Amino acid sequence: MAVSISAVALLSIVVFVLIRGGNVRIGPALACAAFGFFLASTGAAPVISTAISAVTGWIASI
């Protein structure tokens, strides 16, 4: 749970900086957010969550 909240906070900051910097417009950013929202309700969500947990665990062990 703590990893997902940290990931959401980090990714929201990255998106905010990209929008403010002019690298990403608001439309594509909203489309990506909607894609992530709908992806979370599919069968791929547990696989993605497990992969992210494995990567963060690997990074923490370094």
Rank of each mutant, 00 (worst) to 15 (best):
M1E: 10
A2D: 06
A2K: 08
A2P: 03
S4H: 05
S4M: 13
S6E: 06
A7C: 06
A7E: 08
A7R: 10
A7Y: 07
V8A: 15
A9I: 14
A9Q: 12
L10M: 12
L10T: 15
L11F: 15
L11K: 15
L11T: 15
S12Y: 11
I13P: 04
V15C: 08
V15Y: 14
V15I: 14
F16Q: 07
F16G: 11
F16S: 10
V17P: 04
V17S: 03
V17K: 07
V17C: 10
L18S: 04
L18P: 01
I19F: 04
I19D: 03
I19E: 08
I19Y: 05
I19R: 06
R20P: 00
R20I: 01
R20N: 09
G21L: 14
G22M: 02
G22S: 00
N23W: 15
N23L: 12
V24A: 09
V24R: 00
I26E: 15
G27A: 10
P28W: 04
A29K: 01
A29E: 04
L30N: 04
L30K: 01
L30T: 07
L30V: 09
L30S: 12
L30A: 09
A31V: 14
A31W: 09
A31R: 09
A31C: 09
C32D: 12
C32R: 10
C32W: 11
A33V: 10
A33D: 09
A34Y: 11
A34F: 13
F35Q: 00
G36P: 00
G36A: 05
F37Q: 10
F38D: 03
L39T: 12
L39K: 11
A40F: 04
A40N: 10
S41A: 09
S41G: 10
S41W: 07
T42W: 04
T42G: 01
T42N: 02
G43L: 06
A44R: 03
A44H: 07
A44T: 02
A45F: 06
A45S: 08
P46V: 00
P46N: 03
V47T: 06
V47W: 09
I48L: 04
I48Y: 00
S49D: 13
S49W: 10
S49H: 09
S49I: 12
S49C: 11
A51I: 07
I52W: 07
S53T: 06
S53H: 09
A54M: 14
A54P: 05
A54I: 05
V55G: 00
V55L: 08
V55H: 01
V55N: 00
T56V: 10
T56P: 03
T56G: 01
G57Y: 02
G57D: 06
G57I: 03
G57L: 03
W58G: 12
W58T: 11
W58R: 13
I59Q: 04
I59R: 00
I59G: 00
I59L: 00
A60N: 04
S61V: 02
I62V: 13
